[in-house]
Computed example of a mutant assay.
Amino acid sequence: MSLFWRIFLLNAVVLVLAAAALLLGPVTVSTPVLFTEAVVLSGGLAVMLVANAVLLRVGLAPLDRLTRAMTTTDLLRPGPRPTPTGHGEIARLIRTFNTMLDRLEAERGDSAARALSAQEAERSRVARELHDEVGQTLTAVLLELKRVADHAPPTVRDELRQVQETTRGGLDEIRRIARRLRPGVLEELGLVSALKALTTEIAGHSGLSVRRRFDGHLPDLGNEVELVVYRVAQEAITNVARHASAGHLDLTLSHDRDRVDLRIRDDGRGLGDSAEGSGIRGMRERALLIGAGLTVHSEPGGGTEVRLRVPIPTRSS
């Protein structure tokens, strides 16, 4: 039965019952209308309106739940689907909405995976060019400066030495950027070594005091999952160094029977009332790609905690 006919029949039932009560009951209407008759009719009308409102509220309650779900749905934070309660068109509408959400989440996941894959490929290309082209060029410049400085008069030699140091600092910075773009330590030595190198580098440049704890015998997560964990940790730690005004940072990588937990907590100023930026949304997109859950908890003046819960991949025998 369509929604139109359901509402029509609900109103028809109320009106028929009211007409039957008026025809078969002791109530009559005089001309002019007596006060008692007006009271009875007013009370009957009030009863009709209340009964109609209750019936409509019960019948349209699933639509209210669907409206709330539509206004609160976030594809980056998948939640439970609204239950397809009700009958006829309402239940079909809720099922259609759930199907649409499934399709949108799948399409967003595919597009995000392609975008992040392209981003990683571009990062690797830029890192290689920085290392192979710019790095080698600056290395050649350093060697030439050394050769010139060795044969230069003393008045010019000191200035050439300063240029050497500036060039060497630029070369070190380029190498650091290349390492962040393409974490070779992650590919060669694994996730724990890459996280240690990342925190050591951040601490050296930002002055953060970093405390690390890694569980022993971490399960093999696979290259794709380890890259996501590393990128989430990299983004979170970079945000702390740049924006949190923190002095201490704790990084924990632990595991239990079915998942690996990454926790990064600082003692900075917290997120406050500011909306989530592109960095956090990027972390959420990466977490969705591997079926992980990401939570960002912050208290004003109490720091921020980023937690990534990664399910351990099952190995088919």
Results as ranks from 00 to 15, higher is better:
residue 210 V to E: 04
residue 223 N to K: 15
residue 86 G to T: 02
residue 7 I to N: 10
residue 74 D to I: 02
residue 255 H to T: 09
residue 41 L to I: 10
residue 302 G to N: 05
residue 114 R to M: 03
residue 178 A to G: 10
residue 38 A to R: 11
residue 237 I to C: 12
residue 5 W to P: 00
residue 282 G to W: 09
residue 311 P to G: 04
residue 12 A to E: 01
residue 233 A to K: 10
residue 305 E to D: 00
residue 145 L to M: 11
residue 23 L to K: 05
residue 265 R to W: 11
residue 205 H to K: 14
residue 18 A to I: 04
residue 143 L to Q: 15
residue 104 L to P: 13
residue 245 S to Q: 08
residue 171 L to Y: 08
residue 174 I to M: 11
residue 265 R to N: 03
residue 200 T to K: 13
residue 133 E to K: 15
residue 129 E to H: 15
residue 144 E to H: 14
residue 78 P to L: 11
residue 274 S to N: 08
residue 55 L to F: 13
residue 158 D to M: 09
residue 19 A to L: 15
residue 79 G to T: 07
residue 90 I to V: 11
residue 240 V to R: 10
residue 35 F to Y: 06
residue 81 R to P: 00
residue 123 R to H: 15
residue 68 R to A: 07
residue 115 A to S: 14
residue 179 R to T: 08
residue 30 S to V: 00
residue 212 R to W: 02
residue 232 V to E: 04
residue 152 A to I: 07
residue 292 A to C: 03
residue 117 S to H: 11
residue 2 S to D: 07
residue 147 R to M: 01
residue 89 E to L: 11
residue 254 S to F: 01
residue 144 E to Y: 00
residue 171 L to S: 08
residue 103 R to V: 08
residue 315 R to V: 03
residue 130 L to T: 08
residue 228 V to G: 11
residue 237 I to R: 09
residue 155 T to Q: 14
residue 180 R to Q: 06
residue 257 R to L: 08
residue 279 G to A: 09
residue 195 L to F: 14
residue 260 V to I: 04
residue 189 L to N: 11
residue 232 V to C: 11
residue 312 I to A: 06
residue 230 Y to M: 02
residue 54 V to R: 12
residue 130 L to Y: 11
residue 141 V to S: 02
residue 234 Q to R: 13
residue 156 V to K: 15
